[in-house]
Amino acid sequence: MADVALSRSSAITSRQSFLNPRRRRLITSVVLAAICILWVYPLVWMVSASFKSNSEIFAGGGLIPENPTFENFVRAWHEANIGAYFFNTLFVTVGSVLITTISAALMGYALGRRPFPGRAALFGLMLFTLFIPQGYTIIPVFELLSNLGLGQSLWGLMLATCGHSIVIFTLLFAGYFSQMPKELEEASRMDGVGPVKTFWYVMLPLSKPIIVTVVVMQTLQAWNDFLLPLVITLANPALRTLSVGIYSFRGEHFIDWGGMTAGSTITIVPVIILFLFLQRYFIDGLAGAVKG
Protein backbone atom coordinates (compact mmCIF):
# COMPACT_ATOMS: atom_id res chain seq x y z
CA MET A 1 0.00 0.00 0.00
CA ALA A 2 2.68 2.45 1.06
CA ASP A 3 4.63 1.60 -2.06
CA VAL A 4 1.70 2.33 -4.32
CA ALA A 5 1.05 5.66 -2.66
CA LEU A 6 4.71 6.53 -2.85
CA SER A 7 5.21 5.76 -6.49
CA ARG A 8 2.04 7.57 -7.46
CA SER A 9 2.97 10.77 -5.67
CA SER A 10 6.49 10.55 -6.97
CA ALA A 11 5.14 10.60 -10.47
CA ILE A 12 3.44 13.90 -9.77
CA THR A 13 6.07 15.76 -7.75
CA SER A 14 9.79 15.64 -8.06
CA ARG A 15 10.97 12.05 -7.89
CA GLN A 16 14.13 12.90 -5.99
CA SER A 17 12.54 14.36 -2.89
CA PHE A 18 10.16 11.46 -2.30
CA LEU A 19 12.32 8.54 -3.22
CA ASN A 20 15.59 9.65 -1.82
CA PRO A 21 17.18 6.60 -0.26
CA ARG A 22 17.40 7.99 3.25
CA ARG A 23 13.74 8.78 3.46
CA ARG A 24 12.81 5.42 2.05
CA ARG A 25 15.05 3.67 4.56
CA LEU A 26 13.37 5.60 7.34
CA ILE A 27 9.92 4.52 6.16
CA THR A 28 11.11 0.90 5.80
CA SER A 29 12.53 1.00 9.32
CA VAL A 30 9.35 2.34 10.84
CA VAL A 31 7.14 -0.22 9.08
CA LEU A 32 9.51 -3.07 9.96
CA ALA A 33 9.72 -1.90 13.57
CA ALA A 34 5.94 -1.96 13.85
CA ILE A 35 5.74 -5.46 12.37
CA CYS A 36 8.54 -6.78 14.56
CA ILE A 37 6.97 -5.40 17.71
CA LEU A 38 3.72 -7.15 16.80
CA TRP A 39 5.78 -10.27 15.99
CA VAL A 40 7.24 -10.57 19.50
CA TYR A 41 4.23 -9.08 21.30
CA PRO A 42 2.76 -12.49 22.28
CA LEU A 43 6.03 -13.48 23.96
CA VAL A 44 6.40 -10.15 25.75
CA TRP A 45 2.77 -10.41 26.83
CA MET A 46 3.42 -13.86 28.27
CA VAL A 47 6.46 -12.70 30.24
CA SER A 48 4.45 -9.77 31.55
CA ALA A 49 1.59 -12.11 32.54
CA SER A 50 4.00 -14.20 34.61
CA PHE A 51 4.34 -11.23 36.99
CA LYS A 52 0.57 -10.76 37.32
CA SER A 53 -1.95 -12.44 39.57
CA ASN A 54 -4.36 -14.86 37.92
CA SER A 55 -7.19 -12.35 38.19
CA GLU A 56 -5.14 -9.56 36.65
CA ILE A 57 -4.08 -11.57 33.59
CA PHE A 58 -7.51 -11.54 32.00
CA ALA A 59 -8.49 -8.10 33.27
CA GLY A 60 -7.25 -6.60 30.00
CA GLY A 61 -4.65 -4.32 31.56
CA GLY A 62 -1.42 -3.09 29.97
CA LEU A 63 1.92 -4.83 29.71
CA ILE A 64 3.23 -3.40 32.99
CA PRO A 65 1.72 -5.34 35.92
CA GLU A 66 -0.11 -3.19 38.44
CA ASN A 67 0.99 -5.25 41.42
CA PRO A 68 4.08 -7.14 40.27
CA THR A 69 4.41 -10.46 42.06
CA PHE A 70 6.89 -13.32 42.14
CA GLU A 71 4.33 -15.72 43.59
CA ASN A 72 3.79 -17.41 40.22
CA PHE A 73 7.47 -18.26 39.99
CA VAL A 74 7.62 -19.65 43.51
CA ARG A 75 4.51 -21.76 42.88
CA ALA A 76 5.75 -23.03 39.51
CA TRP A 77 9.25 -23.81 40.78
CA HIS A 78 8.10 -25.82 43.82
CA GLU A 79 4.55 -27.08 43.36
CA ALA A 80 4.71 -27.72 39.64
CA ASN A 81 8.24 -29.14 39.93
CA ILE A 82 9.58 -26.76 37.31
CA GLY A 83 12.75 -26.57 39.41
CA ALA A 84 13.36 -30.32 39.11
CA TYR A 85 12.48 -30.27 35.39
CA PHE A 86 14.94 -27.45 34.90
CA PHE A 87 17.80 -29.59 36.17
CA ASN A 88 16.63 -32.64 34.17
CA THR A 89 16.70 -30.52 31.02
CA LEU A 90 20.10 -29.09 31.90
CA PHE A 91 21.52 -32.60 32.44
CA VAL A 92 20.16 -33.95 29.15
CA THR A 93 21.20 -30.85 27.22
CA VAL A 94 24.76 -30.65 28.52
CA GLY A 95 25.34 -34.39 28.09
CA SER A 96 23.93 -34.57 24.59
CA VAL A 97 25.86 -31.48 23.50
CA LEU A 98 29.14 -33.01 24.69
CA ILE A 99 28.52 -36.40 23.09
CA THR A 100 27.13 -35.02 19.83
CA THR A 101 29.86 -32.44 19.31
CA ILE A 102 32.72 -34.88 19.96
CA SER A 103 31.21 -37.69 17.86
CA ALA A 104 30.33 -35.39 14.97
CA ALA A 105 33.76 -33.76 14.96
CA LEU A 106 35.54 -37.14 14.93
CA MET A 107 33.31 -38.60 12.24
CA GLY A 108 33.38 -35.35 10.24
CA TYR A 109 37.17 -35.35 10.30
CA ALA A 110 37.40 -38.90 8.97
CA LEU A 111 34.74 -38.23 6.32
CA GLY A 112 36.13 -34.88 5.29
CA ARG A 113 39.84 -35.68 5.12
CA ARG A 114 40.68 -39.37 5.32
CA PRO A 115 40.28 -41.45 2.14
CA PHE A 116 39.28 -44.70 3.90
CA PRO A 117 37.45 -47.45 1.96
CA GLY A 118 33.68 -47.20 2.39
CA ARG A 119 33.69 -43.42 2.75
CA ALA A 120 31.44 -42.73 -0.25
CA ALA A 121 28.96 -45.39 0.90
CA LEU A 122 28.76 -43.88 4.37
CA PHE A 123 28.21 -40.41 2.88
CA GLY A 124 25.40 -41.77 0.74
CA LEU A 125 23.73 -43.54 3.65
CA MET A 126 23.86 -40.37 5.74
CA LEU A 127 22.33 -38.22 3.02
CA PHE A 128 19.61 -40.81 2.52
CA THR A 129 18.57 -40.55 6.18
CA LEU A 130 18.70 -36.76 6.35
CA PHE A 131 14.95 -36.23 6.11
CA ILE A 132 13.48 -39.18 7.99
CA PRO A 133 10.51 -37.98 10.08
CA GLN A 134 10.71 -38.57 13.82
CA GLY A 135 7.35 -40.32 13.83
CA TYR A 136 8.96 -43.05 11.76
CA THR A 137 11.73 -43.80 14.26
CA ILE A 138 10.20 -43.16 17.68
CA ILE A 139 8.85 -46.68 18.32
CA PRO A 140 12.12 -48.57 17.59
CA VAL A 141 14.11 -45.92 19.48
CA PHE A 142 11.96 -46.38 22.57
CA GLU A 143 12.05 -50.19 22.22
CA LEU A 144 15.84 -50.10 21.89
CA LEU A 145 16.23 -47.91 24.97
CA SER A 146 13.89 -50.19 26.94
CA ASN A 147 15.93 -53.25 25.93
CA LEU A 148 19.09 -51.50 27.06
CA GLY A 149 17.40 -50.73 30.38
CA LEU A 150 17.42 -47.01 29.56
CA GLY A 151 13.76 -46.58 28.62
CA GLN A 152 12.98 -44.81 31.87
CA SER A 153 16.14 -42.86 32.43
CA LEU A 154 17.64 -39.49 31.68
CA TRP A 155 20.73 -41.26 30.31
CA GLY A 156 18.59 -42.93 27.67
CA LEU A 157 16.96 -39.64 26.82
CA MET A 158 20.36 -37.98 26.56
CA LEU A 159 21.71 -40.64 24.19
CA ALA A 160 18.68 -40.66 21.93
CA THR A 161 18.68 -36.85 21.81
CA CYS A 162 22.17 -37.09 20.27
CA GLY A 163 20.68 -38.88 17.28
CA HIS A 164 18.45 -36.01 16.12
CA SER A 165 20.97 -33.93 14.21
CA ILE A 166 24.18 -35.91 14.23
CA VAL A 167 24.03 -36.34 10.46
CA ILE A 168 23.74 -32.62 9.77
CA PHE A 169 26.49 -31.79 12.27
CA THR A 170 28.80 -34.44 10.84
CA LEU A 171 28.27 -33.05 7.35
CA LEU A 172 28.99 -29.53 8.64
CA PHE A 173 32.28 -30.69 10.16
CA ALA A 174 33.17 -32.76 7.09
CA GLY A 175 32.58 -29.80 4.80
CA TYR A 176 34.68 -27.53 6.96
CA PHE A 177 37.59 -29.94 7.39
CA SER A 178 37.68 -30.79 3.70
CA GLN A 179 38.35 -27.14 2.82
CA MET A 180 41.47 -26.89 4.96
CA PRO A 181 44.84 -26.80 3.16
CA LYS A 182 46.57 -30.14 2.61
CA GLU A 183 49.85 -28.78 3.98
CA LEU A 184 48.50 -28.99 7.52
CA GLU A 185 48.61 -32.78 7.53
CA GLU A 186 51.72 -33.05 5.43
CA ALA A 187 53.57 -30.84 7.88
CA SER A 188 52.50 -32.93 10.83
CA ARG A 189 53.36 -36.18 9.01
CA MET A 190 56.83 -34.82 8.37
CA ASP A 191 57.14 -34.17 12.08
CA GLY A 192 56.06 -37.75 12.73
CA VAL A 193 52.71 -36.85 14.29
CA GLY A 194 49.90 -39.38 13.83
CA PRO A 195 46.32 -38.64 12.74
CA VAL A 196 44.98 -38.66 16.30
CA LYS A 197 47.36 -35.98 17.49
CA THR A 198 46.94 -34.01 14.26
CA PHE A 199 43.22 -34.04 14.82
CA TRP A 200 43.45 -33.02 18.45
CA TYR A 201 46.16 -30.36 18.26
CA VAL A 202 45.74 -28.98 14.75
CA MET A 203 42.32 -29.68 13.28
CA LEU A 204 40.05 -29.33 16.28
CA PRO A 205 41.36 -25.92 17.39
CA LEU A 206 40.97 -24.66 13.82
CA SER A 207 37.34 -25.76 13.66
CA LYS A 208 36.20 -23.54 16.52
CA PRO A 209 33.49 -21.75 14.48
CA ILE A 210 31.83 -25.07 13.60
CA ILE A 211 32.16 -26.33 17.17
CA VAL A 212 30.36 -23.26 18.50
CA THR A 213 27.68 -23.57 15.80
CA VAL A 214 27.08 -27.23 16.66
CA VAL A 215 27.02 -26.53 20.39
CA VAL A 216 24.47 -23.74 20.00
CA MET A 217 22.25 -25.70 17.60
CA GLN A 218 22.30 -28.88 19.67
CA THR A 219 21.62 -26.91 22.87
CA LEU A 220 18.52 -25.35 21.36
CA GLN A 221 17.44 -28.69 19.94
CA ALA A 222 17.88 -30.59 23.21
CA TRP A 223 16.37 -27.85 25.34
CA ASN A 224 13.27 -27.56 23.13
CA ASP A 225 12.87 -31.24 22.20
CA PHE A 226 9.37 -32.61 22.68
CA LEU A 227 8.35 -35.98 21.21
CA LEU A 228 11.23 -38.03 22.61
CA PRO A 229 11.10 -36.70 26.20
CA LEU A 230 7.32 -36.97 26.09
CA VAL A 231 7.47 -40.66 25.23
CA ILE A 232 10.27 -41.48 27.67
CA THR A 233 8.63 -39.72 30.59
CA LEU A 234 5.06 -40.92 29.96
CA ALA A 235 5.33 -43.45 32.79
CA ASN A 236 7.83 -41.48 34.84
CA PRO A 237 6.82 -37.87 35.57
CA ALA A 238 9.88 -37.23 37.75
CA LEU A 239 12.10 -37.32 34.66
CA ARG A 240 10.19 -34.71 32.69
CA THR A 241 12.07 -32.00 30.87
CA LEU A 242 10.86 -28.39 30.87
CA SER A 243 9.04 -28.73 27.55
CA VAL A 244 7.12 -31.78 28.71
CA GLY A 245 6.71 -30.29 32.19
CA ILE A 246 5.07 -27.14 30.83
CA TYR A 247 2.88 -29.29 28.59
CA SER A 248 1.73 -31.45 31.51
CA PHE A 249 1.34 -28.44 33.79
CA ARG A 250 -1.30 -27.23 31.37
CA GLY A 251 -3.13 -30.53 31.56
CA GLU A 252 -3.00 -30.65 35.36
CA HIS A 253 -3.49 -27.02 36.44
CA PHE A 254 -5.41 -25.73 33.47
CA ILE A 255 -6.66 -22.56 35.13
CA ASP A 256 -3.40 -21.47 36.73
CA TRP A 257 -2.26 -19.22 33.88
CA GLY A 258 0.03 -17.27 36.21
CA GLY A 259 1.95 -20.44 37.13
CA MET A 260 2.03 -21.58 33.51
CA THR A 261 3.40 -18.30 32.20
CA ALA A 262 5.96 -18.22 35.03
CA GLY A 263 7.09 -21.76 34.15
CA SER A 264 7.25 -20.75 30.49
CA THR A 265 9.36 -17.71 31.33
CA ILE A 266 11.78 -19.89 33.30
CA THR A 267 11.97 -22.19 30.27
CA ILE A 268 12.66 -19.58 27.61
CA VAL A 269 15.02 -17.21 29.44
CA PRO A 270 18.14 -19.46 29.25
CA VAL A 271 17.70 -20.25 25.54
CA ILE A 272 16.96 -16.67 24.62
CA ILE A 273 20.04 -15.41 26.48
CA LEU A 274 22.17 -18.09 24.78
CA PHE A 275 20.73 -17.20 21.41
CA LEU A 276 21.20 -13.45 21.83
CA PHE A 277 24.88 -13.86 22.67
CA LEU A 278 25.74 -16.55 20.13
CA GLN A 279 23.23 -15.94 17.36
CA ARG A 280 25.92 -15.36 14.77
CA TYR A 281 27.04 -18.99 15.05
CA PHE A 282 23.52 -20.34 14.96
CA ILE A 283 22.70 -18.31 11.89
CA ASP A 284 25.94 -19.33 10.17
CA GLY A 285 25.07 -22.97 10.80
CA LEU A 286 21.59 -22.58 9.33
CA ALA A 287 22.88 -20.62 6.36
CA GLY A 288 25.42 -23.38 5.71
CA ALA A 289 22.57 -25.84 5.24
CA VAL A 290 21.28 -23.87 2.24
CA LYS A 291 24.61 -23.06 0.64
CA GLY A 292 25.91 -26.62 0.89
Binding site: A110, T137, V167, T170, P195, V196
Partner: peptide, 26 residues
Protein backbone atom coordinates in the same frame (compact mmCIF):
# COMPACT_ATOMS: atom_id res chain seq x y z
CA UNK B 1 43.05 -46.83 7.35
CA UNK B 2 42.39 -48.63 10.63
CA UNK B 3 42.85 -45.45 12.65
CA UNK B 4 40.30 -43.64 10.48
CA UNK B 5 37.69 -46.21 11.42
CA UNK B 6 38.39 -45.49 15.08
CA UNK B 7 37.37 -41.90 14.45
CA UNK B 8 34.02 -43.16 13.22
CA UNK B 9 33.19 -45.34 16.21
CA UNK B 10 31.26 -42.94 18.50
CA UNK B 11 29.41 -41.29 15.63
CA UNK B 12 28.52 -44.60 13.99
CA UNK B 13 27.20 -45.99 17.28
CA UNK B 14 24.74 -43.09 17.58
CA UNK B 15 23.94 -43.03 13.86
CA UNK B 16 23.44 -46.80 13.82
CA UNK B 17 21.39 -47.05 17.00
CA UNK B 18 19.09 -44.06 16.61
CA UNK B 19 18.80 -43.63 12.85
CA UNK B 20 19.71 -46.71 10.81
CA UNK B 21 18.35 -49.36 13.18
CA UNK B 22 14.97 -47.60 13.67
CA UNK B 23 14.64 -47.33 9.89
CA UNK B 24 15.01 -51.07 9.47
CA UNK B 25 13.14 -52.07 12.62
CA UNK B 26 10.10 -49.98 11.71
Amino acid sequence: SRIDYLFLVPGLLIFGAFIVWPLIAS
